[in-house]
Each structure stands twice: as structure tokens, then as C-alpha cells.
Write a protein that binds this DNA or RNA. Structure first.
Length: 664
RNA sequence: GCGCCCAUAGCUCAGUUGGAUAGAGCGAUUGACUACGAAUCAAUAGGUCGGAGGUUCGAAUCCUUCUGGGCGCGCCA
């Protein structure tokens, strides 16, 4: 409702400005006044026009207000302060509109989008940093779908990279295992109920140390690593088979971990197929023919195919032979003929946009309750969904990779795909780090020089960090304890279900409440908190509304339909009424928030909005007792207030991937 | 050396395109369960928005510069 009225007001203002002053204003700024008593919308447009029209802002505002006359849905307009134009909604009409309209008001373009997130190297357990990535990505997927977009969810698997090679080195060289004994190890772990990704977490840290441990052996050990990597890339040998087996098992564990948080994928494209299906060869031809890549015959990059780095100045046309080569250029093909990471990424992104001219084969990999997750393959099933060929893509990748991401975009633009480049979003976010205090509490050795730092980066290589499953386990244990104490009357299965929902709500909200470019200095105590600005606080508000309808022997949808027969306006004026109106106003803004979140690629806005609505409701709930209200018309209205809160909170929580339990 | 990000209450963070008196949560102090569930609510204290200039009717927000911190910048992936 709020967004629709805002657009109406915008249009009306535009018309008035045209008629009064013959001016076209590109952007009409409309905001919410600092206090609800000033109305629901405010525009400082008169200030902006003051200079152009050589007139006092207050005078302009008065003229505009006079010209606005009557606009449907608005109670009136007035001038305030030095020249603000304030608009008041017709509150009674607004309540009816909000109660009746449960649908999303405005849709962004109906694009076919592709969101890639999670993308954990399949060589160790997922940790808190990966959780931030997956939760951000999954939430954004839900937002896009809510806005009517068709979205494919992809989780890119680097199954042939150095990190997997490190695990293979660990198994085959440190542990002296063969393919058969690795199989036996996996069977043993599985029989004991141990997690393969946890085993790899420790092994990976050991291997990383082993490379560095002995100065004399260092070079030889690096050679082992490199040789293993090449065997894995080539395929068809024992190291590759071990890598394939272990990385696939770890990948399954990642999918299970994420499923605990309600996160699902449609496709797992793997690097092994990008290599073996020779995606790069096709991309290379395009890049060469369009002149994006050129062969360097001089300087430090002699013998390489390079491209101009994103953000660097276009080379000045010069005949000066002394100018020399662009030493800052990005190497895409090495002098030994192998392609770099960015090169492979360019090929992969051409595929994402349907511009490569080749496709993966596909196999079913993982079954969810309502759909299946597919994986790339060299040869696969004849029938499969269509993947790739998206109009817009979002890559959820941490901010440290902004340079390589910019280079991929630059390559697309160089190839003439300006439209695609414009719809390529590096959905970047800052890392999750541990506070030194938290690291110490978890039993890690923190070097003296690090103790004064604000935070310490999580590192899989060092085995330093909080594993995702451990964190979820701890959260579930903590919520289980609370639920058991509060609800001895419920049976165990119900209590377990509630505890799980609250734990997921706490974790997802914790990861979403920070804006993307703020580093999360992870603190276990904050993450385990269920009070204040947390997921459980919002869930609790919903539980309260459920309880009201249960006790009142009615239902939210009935309450929303009933308010139709009541004139709510008497209950919406005066100081006492402002806090009730505040609930309706906030509830009316969900569509606006959806639009803003998508436009800014920032889920945190919605997280905050949901919290504020829960807070408005809690405030209202304390002051106005619904079920004992003697005036039947007013009671109907108060019930509808609880109902609209419930409807909007459940919807917003759903987009955040958080469910609302029946009790808690 | 170059590039990107950050600095707002004791702590953790909001403040979206520049707009009215800079807001939350936690922590602190005080109060509220004989009414819909206290995982709650109310109240109080707490700020030269890192420093200095500038642009503007108006700056936490934009520009310049300095300080302090983080992250990138490879013929690694």
C-alpha cells in the first residue's frame, strides 16, 4: 500500500511542477518524516527548486500544496518547517487497503536470473564465513523469487583445484593411502558416524603445515603438490579418482549442512567439466577474434596472452617504440600454454549468459523434498532441465575477489556484451572474522601480537575457525534447553522441531542483520543470543499473535476480512492511536522494502524492517489489551492489527528463510 | 607503491537518493507478570558522527587532505 501511494504522490507532484513552473524534475525525493505526527510522506522538493525559481522555499511549498488539491487515499497536504511538503494518508482507507491487499504491489523486471552462492572448496568442513555467503545468497534468491523473477541457484564446485589437491596429497603422501584404502577409510568414518568433512578439516591443516615444516624439503613438497594438481586436472589416474571420491563426499556434507538451514540448490557446475568439455577453447577463440586478448612479445609477460586490467586507462595510441608493453596487463594464458583462473571464469560466465556455444551434460545428484539438485557431467542423462542462458547474474563472492570479478566483467564488455555486463552483479560481502577473545574461548592459540587486533581472519588452511555444523549444533542445544524448560507439556518431537526452528532463526538473522560491507567480528555469545535484535524476538511476536487467535477462537484471515465492516478511523487519531497506526504503517511497507532490497542487493534492510515491525507490535501489544476489549467494533479492529502483523511478519521471515513456530 | 573497504553511544551495529531534534540492540541503573506467554515492555544515563578544510539553503552522508585499521594488487586457484 505504502509504495503504491508513494508512486501516486510522485506522479501528482511531477504533474503539478510541470503545470505550475514548467519544470521537469528527474527524481522526486520522497521520504518519511522524522515523526509520525508530521504525516506519512515528506518531500523537500521546494528547497531544490528555490534556487532555480528564485523564490523562497516556503512560498514554493505553499503554491505546490495549493495545487495538489485532492489526491485519492490522502487526507491532505501541508507545509512544514522552512518548506517541507508533508502528506497525510487517509488512515481509515489505508487500513482497509492494507487489510485487503496481501499481495506484492510492484514488481521489478521479470528477468531470468542466476544466483551463484556457497561455492565452498570441497576439501574441508564449512565454517562461519561460508554460512554468511550461503545465507546471504539464499535470502537474495528468496527476495528475487518473491518479486516474480525466475531464479536458478547454482553452487560452483572447484573440484580440481589446489585445495582438493592438498587433501589428496595428505591422503596419498602423508597417510600413504591408495584409492582402495581411502575407500576403506570413508567406510570406517561413515560406520562410526564421523563426518568426512571434519576429517578433512584436520588433514588440510596438517598438509598445509607439512609444506612449510622443513626448509630443506620445502621445494620437493611443493613439487608433489603441483604434480598432484596436474594429475587431478588431467583425470584418468589414481590421484584424480581419490580427489573425485573425497571431494564428492565432502560436497554432499556441505549440501546436508546447508539443508539444515533450509538452503537448496538447482545445479552444481564443476570445474572438472569446464576443463574436460574444453569451455576455454571456445572462449579463447572469441576473446582473440574480438581483440580482448593479445599476445605479449615483450617484457615480463612475454609469451603470454594478456588483457587490459579492469579499471586501467585505455592505452594511448602511440607510435613511440619506447613506450613498452603494458606491464600491468592481466595474464590469461601463461607462456606454457595453460589458462589461468580468470580465463576459466570468463568461459564459465559466457556459459551463464548463454554466449559460449556449448553446454554441460547433467546428472541428478541430490534429492530435496520438492525438487532435485543436478550436477554437471561429461555425459549425463538425456532428459534434464535447461540451465544457463540467464539475463542477469549475481555472484555471491567475498569482497577480496572484487578484482578478478571486475576482470571477468571487463572481458564481457570487451566482447561486445554490454547488456550482459550491466546485468552482472558481484554481490560482494565482507568476511567473517573471530574476535581474539572468541578465538581464545574456543581454545585456539592466539599469538601475542594478534591479541590486540579487532579481529582475526578465519583460515581453513590453518584449521582456524568455527565449523558450521558445530555452531548449528550449539544453537540447537541452547534452544532445546529453553524449549524443554518452557514447554514440558509438549511431546519430544514437537519440542525438537521448535528448537530447530528457533536455532535456524537465530543464526540466519544474525548473518543477515549486518549490512554486506561490514566485517562481522564473530562472537559466540552474540550469535547464541535470543534477546533483543534477533530472529527469535521476531518469531516470538508471531507466536504471540497466534496465541491471541487461539484464545480468541478466531483466525487471522477472518480478522482481516471482518475489519472491512468497521470504520477504523475513530481509532486512528490522537496520541493513543499513533502507536497502533505505526503497526499498520510499518506493515504497509513490505513491498517497498522488497523493492529496496533488490535494488540495493541488500537483504539487511528487510531483516531490520521485520525487527521493527515486531517491535512496533510488541509495543502495541503491551498497551492495548485485545481480547478483553469491550467495544466490539474496536475489538475487531485490534484483532485485525494483530492479524496484519502476523501476515507481514510471516511473509518477511519467509523471505529471510526463517519460519515462525506455533509456540516457543 | 597503486586500488577497494571501514572509522557513529562503554560494546556491536543502523542511518538507502545530501533534508526536520543522529537511532537500535547489548551492557549499566530503575520499574512492570491477579489481563491475550516477561525469549517481553517502560524509563534514565550515555554522541565535538576519527581530525582539519571545502561544496551546499542544508553534510554522518558529497569533494580534498591527514590519521588509524582491514583487504586486494601472482605466468596461485
Amino acid at each position: 500500500m505504502y509504495l503504491r501511494q508513494q508512486k501516486k504522490l510522485e506522479e501528482r507532484l511531477r504533474t503539478v511542477l510541470r503545470e505550475l513552473y514548467q519544470v521537469e524534475v528527474e527524481k522526486i525525493v520522497i521520504e518519511q518524516p522524522p515523526e509520525i505526527k508530521f504525516g506519512e510522506y515528506a518531500s523537500p522538493i521546494a528547497f531544490e527548486l528555490a534556487r532555480k525559481l528564485r523564490k523562497a522555499p516556503r512560498k514554493i511549498a505553499e503554491e505546490i500544496v495549493a495545487a495538489l488539491e485532492k489526491v485519492e487515499g490522502f487526507a491532505g497536504f501541508e507545509v512544514a518547517g522552512a518548506g517541507y511538503i508533508n502528506a497525510r494518508l487517509d488512515r481509515g482507507a489505508a487500513v482497509q487497503a492494507v487489510a485487503a491487499g496481501g499481495e506484492i504491489e510492484e514488481f521489478a523486471e521479470h528477468l531470468h536470473s542466476l544466483v551463484e552462492h556457497t561455492s565452498i572448496n570441497p576439501n574441508k568442513a564449512a565454517h562461519v564465513g561460508h554460512l554468511r555467503n550461503a545465507i546471504l545468497g539464499d535470502t537474495f534468491v528468496r527476495l528475487l523469487r518473491a518479486a516474480g523473477q525466475k531464479v536458478d541457484v547454482q553452487n560452483y564446485i572447484d573440484n580440481t583445484g589446489v585445495q582438493v589437491a592438498d587433501i589428496v596429497v595428505g591422503l596419498m603422501h602423508l597417510e600413504g593411502m591408495s584409492l582402495e584404502s581411502v575407500k576403506a577409510l570413508m567406510a570406517r568414518l561413515s560406520a562410526r558416524g564421523e563426518r568426512i568433512d571434519y576429517y578433512c578439516w584436520d588433514l588440510y591443516a596438517r598438509v598445509s603445515q607439512w609444506y612449510e615444516a622443513d626448509e630443506e624439503e620445502k621445494h620437493a613438497r611443493r613439487q608433489v603438490r603441483l604434480a598432484t594438481l596436474h594429475e587431478i586436472e588431467r583425470g584418468g589416474n589414481e590421484a584424480a579418482a581419490v580427489g573425485e571420491m573425497v571431494s564428492t563426499a565432502v560436497l554432499r556434507r556441505h549440501l546436508e549442512t546447508m539443508l539444515r538451514l533450509g538452503i537448496e540448490y538447482d545445479l552444481l557446475p564443476r570445474e572438472s567439466e569446464i576443463l574436460h568439455l574444453k569451455f576455454w577453447d571456445l572462449a579463447f577463440e572469441q576473446l582473440k577474434s574480438k581483440g580482448v586478448l593479445y599476445f605479449e612479445s615483450e617484457g615480463k609477460n612475454k609469451g603470454c596472452w594478456v588483457m587490459r586490467r579492469a579499471g586501467s586507462e585505455a592505452p594511448v595510441e602511440t607510435d613511440d617504440p619506447e613506450a613498452g608493453p603494458d606491464e600491468d596487463a592481466k595474464v590469461i594464458v601463461r607462456s606454457n600454454g595453460t589458462v589461468t583462473y580468470v580465463g576459466k571464469d570468463i568461459a564459465y560466465h559466457l556459459w551463464k549468459f548463454g554466449l559460449l556455444g556449448r553446454d554441460f551434460a547433467y546428472r541428478r545428484f541430490f534429492a530435496y523434498a520438492y525438487h532435485e539438485c543436478w550436477i554437471s557431467a561429461e555425459s549425463g542423462e538425456a532428459e534434464h532441465p535447461h540451465f544457463g542462458g540467464a539475463q542477469a547474474i549475481y555472484n555471491v563472492i567475498d569482497s577480496r575477489q572484487s578484482d578478478p570479478q571486475a576482470n571477468v566483467i571487463e572481458a564481457l564488455r570487451g566482447l561486445g556484451f554490454a547488456e550482459q555486463a550491466a546485468h552482472y552483479t558481484h554481490f560482494s560481502y565482507e568476511m567473517v572474522a573471530l574476535t581474539p577473545r572468541c578465538a581464545l574461548e574456543l581454545g585456539y592459540d592466539v599469538p601475542e601480537e594478534d591479541r590486540g587486533r579487532p579481529y582475526i581472519e578465519v583460515s581453513g588452511r590453518k584449521g582456524f575457525g568455527v565449523k558450521a555444523d558445530d555452531l548449528i549444533d550449539q544453537l540447537v542445544a541452547a534452544t532445546q534447553k529453553e524449549v524443554d524448560e518452557r514447554h514440558p507439556e509438549l511431546d519430544e518431537a514437537e519440542r525438537r522441531q521448535i528448537a530447530k526452528e528457533i536455532a535456524v532463526g537465530a543464526l540466519r538473522y544474525f548473518m543477515l542483520k549486518y549490512t554486506r560491507n561490514s566485517v562481522i567480528a564473530f562472537d559466540l555469545r552474540d550469535a547464541l543470543s535470543f534477546e533483543g535484535e534477533t530472529g527469535p524476538y521476531i518469531q516470538y511476536a508471531v507466536v504471540r499473535t497466534r496465541s491471541i487467535f487461539r484464545k480468541g477462537e478466531t483466525a487471522a484471515d477472518v480478522a482481516l476480512a471482518d475489519v472491512n465492516s468497521v470504520d477504523a478511523s475513530p481509532y486512528l487519531t490522537g496520541d493513543e492511536a499513533d502507536e497502533i497506526w505505526q503497526v499498520w504503517l510499518r506493515a504497509a511497507k513490505t513491498s517497498l522494502l522488497l523493492e529496496q532490497c533488490i535494488q540495493a542487493a541488500e537483504p539487511a534492510y528487510l531483516a531490520r524492517h521485520a525487527f521493527q515491525l515486531a517491535q512496533d507490535f510488541s509495543n502495541f501489544y503491551r498497551k492495548h489489551h485485545i481480547l478483553t476489549e469491550p467495544d466490539p467494533a474496536r475489538k475487531t479492529f485490534l484483532l485485525a492489527t494483530a492479524a496484519v502483523t502476523q501476515r507481514e511478519l510471516i511473509r518477511a521471515l519467509g523471505w529471510l528463510g526463517i519460519s515462525a513456530p506455533e509456540a516457543m
